[in-house]
Structure formats: C-alpha cells, structure tokens
Design a binder for these strands. Structure first.
Lengths: 153, 153
DNA sequence: AAGAAATAGGTTGCGCACAATCTAATTCGA
DNA sequence: TCGAATTAGATTGTGCGCAACCTATTTCTT
C-alpha cells in the first residue's frame, strides 16, 4: 500500500501545504482588501501599527520577519497613499520611525470585520483556529532557530 | 484578561501564521536548493514532473495552484537551465508539453534527501506532520471553494 | 460548414521577498 | 579619544504571484 518510491509525493509535503495555503489566504483577503486599496503585506504592516503606533522599520520587521529590502518600498507606498508618515528619529538618526496618519487610523474601522469574514469560510471552531495558529507559530520558531544556527559567525 | 479591543492581535491571525511560516520554509529550503541552482517554486515544479513526466502547463498549474503568468517564465528558466523541454502538443497546438531532460532527471537523486533534512529541524513526529499537512490542505480547499463561489458566472 | 464560445498559453505591469551591497550614524574597545 | 565594529535603513537585481489582456487553436451550436 506504500506509494513511496524514494521521493515523497507532493501532496505529502508539509512545506507545499503551507506554500499553497498562504497563497489561498492571500487571494481570499484580496477581495476584501482591494476596496481599501491595500495589499496583504500592507495590511499586516497596518495591523502592527494599529497595535502599536510609532515603530521603527526594524521593529516592524522583527514582528513580521521581513527586512528593509521588503519594507522600505512598501512603507513608501503606504506613505504616498497617505496612510503613514516616515521620519528620521531625532535621537538616533539611523532609525526611521513610522507613524499612522488620520487616514491610516481610519482604515482600522473599515478593516475591522475582515478577519471574521475570512474566518467564516474556514468553517473551523475558534478553538481549533487558535490551536492551529499556535502550532504553526511554533514550527516557524524552529525553522528560524535552525536558520540562525546555520548562519552562526 | 482579554486583550481584544475590536482588532485581533497579529499573533492571533491564522493567515499571518501561514504567511510567515511559508517564508520560513522557503528560507530553510534555500540552503539546500542553492547548490542545485533551484528556487523553491522551481523545485516544486520538478517534484510534480518527477512524479509524472510530460505534463502540460495547465496540468502543472492545476497541481500547484499556479497560472500561466507564473509558470511560463519559470518554465522558460528551467528550460534555459537545461532541466526541461517545452514543445507544442502535436494533437492540440494550444497546449505546451513539459518533459524532463537527463539533467532534470539527474536532479532528482541530488534532491532526494532534502525533505528529510528540512523535516528533521521541525522536530515533529511523522504522524503529526501527516495530520497537519492534511488539515492545512483541507483549509486550502475551503478557501478555493469560496473563491470560486464568489467568482461565479 | 460557419460563427460563437471556450480553452491554452504568452505578455505586461505591479508588488512583494530577499540576497548582496552601500552609506551614514552610533557604539565599542583598547 | 580614535579607529574598528556594529547597526539602521536604502538600493539594486532577480524571481515569483497574479490580474488584466492578448493571440491562436479547438470545440460547440445550430
């Protein structure tokens, strides 16, 4: 009954499951984010800022596991859309602090129902969603740990 | 004790867990795929072809949930790397059939150990990996179903 | 058999993601 | 205190991922 012939079938790859489900989530969010003129990555940056305003690029990157190469252009787009301000920190000129504008704060109300709307198509009880989220976050932690191990000085 | 103030914290978002873990997997695979000169998406295309050779672009896309806008340039890169051939189907000139070259087949042996190597940093028993993979695939199915519903004719 | 509809694949444009590299500012160390 | 090392962010180049649109081929309809 084994289908194993040296190579795992694609359907058995956990990494592919994550790869494809994250695209599926992206598409599911798009229908709700398009009317707001936001992409999913822009939306998660705003989620971070709605939780805590006035963060540096580095602090945002730490929370999202993204670097400046990704964030700098994204934040410039959010800035030119009028949702955030970018300003060098007076105390430490290396840092750029990102703060919400009124427009950026106003988006929070419009986006409030999105997680619920997407969540209801999942058909999972809240308890299971919570457990799954935690389990996946734990896996991400292990992957990061091993990555920083193999990139040791 | 509730931290809920209208907006879910980022850490409680299942979608962000998937979004960030798929990037983490991508980075974890990179160290093994770089020596082969492959990206992760190229690797999954080859996984499909190693399972069944001589597929059309459409058939590959159906298995990976990707469209021609993504696959055409990717397959051209795999072609110019010498790993696959692209040829119009004689019976139906609309289709392009993708087949492995000797070089493409030879990669299979070199890539055989990768899933095991990445899997061992996860520290999960095989049974749990299997269950998690299935659960995530089921979620992906629900997201696709609702997407095709909302895009009905 | 002829026009309409459907299908497969390619092209263009935009926005991530990330490695590699750069500059400028700050901190560390002898 | 002064040069070395570190840190924050920006820039460049490559490769997805996908919407929108295009062409060519095939199939459907009558």
């Amino acid at each position: 009954m084994t289908t194993e012939r040296g190579t795992l079938a694609l359907s058995q790859h956990l990494c592919f499951a994550f790869y494809s489900v994250s695209h599926a989530f992206n598409r599911a969010y798009r229908q709700f984010l398009d009317p707001l003129g936001l992409t999913y990555p822009q939306y998660v940056v705003l989620l971070v800022l709605w939780e805590q305003d006035d963060l540096t690029v580095k602090e945002i990157g730490d929370r999202l596991f993204l670097d400046s190469g990704t964030l700098t252009p994204l934040l410039k787009r959010l800035e030119s859309a009028g949702h955030v301000r970018r300003a060098r920190d007076k105390k430490d000129e290396r840092q750029v602090r990102i703060s919400l504008t009124d427009s950026g704060r106003a988006l929070q109300a419009k986006a409030k129902e999105i997680p619920k709307q997407v969540g209801c198509v999942l058909g999972l009880p809240l308890e299971e969603i919570r457990a799954l989220t935690e389990q996946v976050a734990k896996l991400r932690g292990r992957l990061h740990d091993s990555a920083s191990l193999s990139a040791k000085s």
